[in-house]
Write a protein that binds this DNA or RNA. Structure first.
Lengths: 212, 212
DNA sequence: GCTGCAATTATGCAAGCGTATAATTGGATG
DNA sequence: CATCCAATTATACGCTTGCATAATTGCAGC
């Protein structure tokens, strides 16, 4: 029989542990849904014992909140990244942004599962709701700025409506690509997205997109 | 002390009980997410004892499957209903269909929560996946038929791409309306949807929609 | 190298979960 | 109105869950 030795461990800073726990939680939710992200499973994946979670998050709900915030920040900076390496020209930048949103790794069943898993909490928890609102509107503002940069004339109200519409196309196509990946051939969604956004705005984005 | 009397009950047909249990499960998921739909809670809401659920569904997963199928059938026939009362004329029918999809009661946070709650299961359970696939493609076919009826000329490939695109706009705007209802004024989404679908197809749906 | 304290592990509990199985009873049938 | 079976209830079991609390230990500062 074993001598009941206590598990050895290494001390870490608060930040390191919190991040490990959040990452573990997101991984588990992506793999097996919200139900798989139990305190014990998160602890194991993060390489700690369940008790430590309680030490850093006073309740599991707090960890959930932190995980959602992290997820949203990841998404936001992922789309910002595309613009860093985008070519010059308003049309080309918009085209790159749209196309990137409709191809892997953004189009990814796991990402949708992750996002969907949080929806219930977002609808009920005012804090999560605020995170959601801020992220959504922030994303739309980026899109609206790209649209505004196009060489056209458009008043503010039109601009807002077009940004909402383009955001809607992107989100909808993203959703369908994630939910039913085998229903579309490679790059089909990106092409449809470019054509649709172009039609809404009255410009030819497909030509711009083909350049990249 | 009570005399431990057994709860009286009324015998019902299989169909009645199954439907009651499915309805109870959907209600609970809509109200409190998947986690709230426990066997005991479903039984209570359906007016029976937990054991009876096992009598009609050999496992909880079977009830989940039946509930998802029912949800999808509801949605399908809800959109078909709109077309029954739609005015004559291809453009007007399409406009009515689009607008109805972007207004209550179709745009409804609870419906989205319900839908999101099932996503994880849909991604993992081949049977649910098939139900999803069939429903999605069926809906898109209806939309494609409406588009095909427009007085324009368009080849099959273009038709398919446009149907996907229009479906994407509708789904995306639906999603945003459900997720952030207060971010849009009344009928704003429907108007944006009509304008966008019209732009994609090269027709003026807004004029058609205004008539109703 | 000792000391102190925060970081970490270990243990335990009450509640709720899905499921199995046995005991009852409603109500159609003759 | 007695019979009988399916519909229904009742009870219990083994697991897992989130959470509380107590015991340990790594390691920085002296």
């Amino acid at each position: 029989m074993t001598t009941g030795e206590r598990r050895p461990y290494k001390r870490e800073g608060e930040e390191v542990r919190r991040e490990a726990m959040i990452a573990a939680a997101l991984d588990l939710i992506a793999e097996g849904g919200i139900a798989a992200a139990t305190v014990r499973a998160i602890a194991e994946k993060a390489g700690v014992t369940p008790g430590l979670i309680r030490h850093y998050f006073k309740a599991k709900e707090d960890l959930t909140r932190a995980a959602y915030q992290t997820l949203m920040e990841r998404m936001t900076q992922a789309s910002a990244l595309v613009l860093d390496t985008a070519p010059d020209g308003a049309g080309a930048r918009l085209a790159a942004f749209v196309a990137a949103s409709l191809r892997p790794p953004v189009v990814d069943p796991a990402a949708m599962g992750l996002w969907a898993g949080f929806i219930h909490h977002v609808q009920r928890d005012p804090m999560l709701r605020e995170v959601h609102r801020t992220t959504y509107l922030g994303y739309r503002d980026v899109l609206q700025a790209l649209i505004a940069a196009l060489p056209r004339k458009a008043d503010a109200a039109t601009l807002r409506a077009q940004a909402i519409a383009c955001n809607g196309v992107i989100d909808g196509l993203w959703l369908e690509g994630c939910a039913l990946p085998e229903a579309f051939v490679k790059d089909e969604l990106a092409e449809i997205g470019l054509r649709s956004v172009g039609a809404i705005l009255g410009v030819d984005l497909l030509a711009e997109g083909k350049k990249t």
